[in-house]
Design a protein around this nucleic acid. Sequence first.
DNA 1: GACCGGACCGCATAACTATACAGTGCGGTG
DNA 2: CACCGCACTGTATAGTTATGCGGTCCGGTC
Lengths: 152, 152
Amino acid sequence: MLTKRSRQQLIRSLISQQRISTQLELVNTLRGLGCHVTQATISRDIREMGLEKYRDHMSRARYALPDTEQKRDPGAAAGRMMREFANVVAVAHNMVVLKSEVGTAPGLGRVIDQLDHDLIIGCVAGDDTVLIVTPDPKAAEQVAEYLQRLGG
Amino acid sequence: MLTKRSRQQLIRSLISQQRISTQLELVNTLRGLGCHVTQATISRDIREMGLEKYRDHMSRARYALPDTEQKRDPGAAAGRMMREFANVVAVAHNMVVLKSEVGTAPGLGRVIDQLDHDLIIGCVAGDDTVLIVTPDPKAAEQVAEYLQRLGG
DNA sequence: GACCGGACCGCATAACTATACAGTGCGGTG
DNA sequence: CACCGCACTGTATAGTTATGCGGTCCGGTC
């Protein structure tokens, strides 16, 4: 049997890769990977890990990593967000303008804040635009390039 | 009987003022206010309004307004957050430093971003600190005062 | 070894939430 | 008015999650 620790790590991996809607679903998926536990244990794991259950834009339920989780690897989180939601990255003077899907800008702004990038002074987000403030035009260029690389 | 619309408004008001942990709790509270509905209706309302259920730092369950909801009245949202989580507001040069309960800084930073305040260029949040960047020391003073007023 | 305490888990079930179905009321249409 | 369609709701129940209790398995102590 897997240790509790590695089981929880497995759960983290699973829920970030595929949509898991119920604990039973998770139990069955884990069973398929040779990890045999009951729904009760999963319930405890989920609370312990602080996972969140929310509904996506199709109002389908899904478990997800908590917000704070993103701090462990802000680059990866930002990369995922960029790939999923960002459309255009542009430079304007000492700022980087990021256009994204409507409604996703606040989330993007947040992960970008969490990058804690030296050249990023701060950012503000509207509905579909993130404005990233940098010290000067050259830094803006660098940040823009960095973000584009993140977004793969 | 209240209209569906006003009932939902009432729900919004209730959950932002007090901790509501279950739908039954909400049903009873509403009943106390003369609004008599069943749990089923509440369940539908909650999904329709996109309310979220999460656990606070004491791991107590609570319903809350969705993130996007805060945009309608960012001042109120920020005020609530400030009252609940902020401890110290200080000025340092052209910045405002906000110390808060551990783990609450990202959320605070976010609502502050959403204030879309003229004098706030942007902000970054750590675990228990929000750094707010303003154009100059005078603006920082003004922002600090504004935030303190918000926090009541 | 005997005993204790704590972490962990499963079982059974309580607690909570979502939904299928049917009923009501209301506005529009013939 | 008769009829239809739609929004809304309650009832009953299915679906989902949380938890009280008891058991097992260590690791430490006497």
